[in-house]
Design a protein around this nucleic acid. Sequence first.
DNA 1: CCTCACTTTGACCAAATGGTCAAGACCACG
DNA 2: CGTGGTCTTGACCATTTGGTCAAAGTGAGG
Lengths: 206, 206
Amino acid sequence: MPSKIPRTRIQKKNHETILEAALDVFSRHGFRGATLDQIALESGLSKPNLLYYFPSKVSIHRALLERLMTNWLDPLYKLDANGDPVEEILAYVLRKLDMAREYPRESRLFANEIVQGAPNIADQIEGELKALVDDKAQVIKGWSQAGRIANVDPYHLIFSIWATTQHYADFDAQVRKIIETDGSSHFDDAGVFLNRMFRQMLAPDA
Amino acid sequence: MPSKIPRTRIQKKNHETILEAALDVFSRHGFRGATLDQIALESGLSKPNLLYYFPSKVSIHRALLERLMTNWLDPLYKLDANGDPVEEILAYVLRKLDMAREYPRESRLFANEIVQGAPNIADQIEGELKALVDDKAQVIKGWSQAGRIANVDPYHLIFSIWATTQHYADFDAQVRKIIETDGSSHFDDAGVFLNRMFRQMLAPDA
DNA sequence: CCTCACTTTGACCAAATGGTCAAGACCACG
DNA sequence: CGTGGTCTTGACCATTTGGTCAAAGTGAGG
């Protein structure tokens, strides 16, 4: 039963195919709303074949979340304690906005999961994610105390960055209905807006 | 079949009971994840009894969304074109934050719906919501052009307010795991943070 | 080209789920 | 207190859905 790490070429390919299809389906319908039949259809494999590679529906979901967590955390991970504070944070904002633009399915997958209480990902949030956030919050706090940026709560700063950037992926349906735009140029406008907003709030002193 | 407006006392009461239970269940599990059995259990009514008052599961969901839309739009509706620009917008932010604090289930209900493409609420977003947002965006734009607030894109301003405030309701599970707080005092901290952020960005000129 | 492990699938299953229905319980009102 | 409408429910149904399994197909190394 090839449940853990794929070994053969075929396993590697099909693992990949399944996760790709599952990302699509789970991100559109949430865990409960997604069905194995949809994933099977979209991946071009038969349902029993899915279950040859993964022992259960929930295991596919978990594998997806685990696989994505690293990339998800990467933009924050890159925040450099030795860089220029304001520019570091703004670069982080733009990286997150790019993620929302380039990987909306991933964003919605996480959104679905967390809105419903993070039943399948609680460990990773309390573990990896919290550790990273705590670490970077310390960095930001250091910058505040050194007077290099304004004195803001680092946790709420991070939350506000997550909220404003992911909003464009997670609530895309709403955004699109309110500002009818042909292309996805609203991401560019959002970039301008967020750059301005965070730059102003981080400017040292007042 | 008492599907439209409740008439008798019993109908009024049970309609209410069902919607209350449905809000709880739908907001926790999303439309697809919620089951009539759960709603029946939580409302204390039998499943066939639910379907005596509502013709289908989706009709309960729609009734909920419609009923909540008014309250949902209310904070923005109250934004007064004749008030002081900065204070009006900040008051709006705080009203939204209070909504997230007091009515997290409602917030998550909408979040679930919109993340999944707003299949059941598209009309109201394109209709009521868009009209209201367009109207208030004009007000804000007027303030910008009069130099009474900084020159910011009103739509993205509104999005950023939605995103940052609703985040505390919709992503509560995550917030709570990252800042372990006994009470819900993080709402107060968020209020301080958001007040500062939006005040700074709205300050006229630069 | 043979063998053996790996891969694939049609048929099937049990449980869950949205919904129906006919019969009974309840309630208001004359 | 009887009657007609309102309300409630146990039993039932069709479909969907996650998951199983035995049997058949396939591919790579000897």
